[in-house]
Design a protein around this nucleic acid. Structure first.
Lengths: 159, 159
DNA sequence: TTAGGGTTTACCATCGTGGGAAGGTCAAGC
DNA sequence: GCTTGACCTTCCCACGATGGTAAACCCTAA
């Protein structure tokens, strides 16, 4: 099977298939005499597995581990469960941080007249006070993007 | 003021200050005779504005617009509100997609014994069925990372 | 004068994905 | 046979925002 057919069958772009091979996520594909990559049904199966794991937000590094467990017939399901739980925890952290950002913005928007006048509490707030709370908390944590907006529950508009 | 002091005062790393200058988010800083960048209180103010906007998850491109509105004394608050609302919508989209991923994973985890046996419904699900729903929906939309996991409410375990 | 710390530019890395160019290959139709 | 179009190959570049490092230069205090 050509890379194009494998791509269609696995829903992984040819570009990505080559990339996964390059970084060692999948073993080098067999080649035809003319240098074309040749894929088996099993290869497509593995690519599909990767694609579904990506759909669930697993990183390539995590998928490396998942593939290892997938191939390990003597695996312990506890290991798989632990990996999945770690990923869930990470997702929950990011969701929490984005919820806080959204809540802050929604509180600001609620106070903005949104008309033709220039006065705007959104800009005013971005300009003036410290948005971040001062909890040192788990700064070492793995949340990749900043997330220190206060939730700003339902404070009255300041203007 | 040196870049280091400006960095401390604005809570934007020196590295990022130079980067923001390079990409044109902020104008080139004045230089001392020896080539050091020199910042005024106003510059720090602007950097602080940028930092707070980043904390709220605005991209640099969005901050370009925000800065334009910030400097535009004849702006209409409706313009600011619209920008903020767009960003909120984007945040909500991403939150939604991550919630779906987390829900799917949690449903899977719930069915995994997590013991020493190799049988694992998580791997089994990654292996077998199509996770993505087939709604074509707004594929053109701006959600950057895949998000086509089904919510998988409380289906009974398949094993 | 020297030592140590700040600053400059320049380059590389991340992570996953897409785009494109330049050239080789294959299969169908003439 | 030859042409044409679709496919494949490798290689390089780009994204976004940030961190790291290295070589060189500058400033200030002792």
């Amino acid at each position: 099977m050509n890379i194009g057919e494998a791509s269609k069958a696995s829903k992984v772009s040819a570009k990505m298939i080559r990339y996964y091979e390059q970084i060692g996520l999948i073993p080098p594909a067999d080649r035809t005499d003319s240098g074309y990559r040749a894929y088996t049904q099993d290869d497509v199966h593995r690519l599909h597995f990767i694609r579904r794991s990506r759909d669930l937000g697993f990183s390539v590094a995590e998928i490396t581990d998942l593939l290892g467990l997938w191939n390990d017939k003597s695996r312990q399901s506890a290991d798989v469960k632990r990996l999945a739980q770690q990923h869930i925890d990470e997702l929950d952290r990011r969701i929490e941080s984005m919820l806080e950002m959204a809540a802050t913005l929604k509180a600001l928007i609620r106070c903005c007249a949104g008309d033709e006048r220039p006065d705007c509490p959104i800009l005013h707030t971005l300009e003036q006070p410290d948005i971040s709370d001062n909890k040192p908390e788990a700064r070492t944590g793995a949340v990749p993007r900043r997330a220190r907006a206060n939730a700003a529950g339902k404070k009255p508009c300041a203007h």
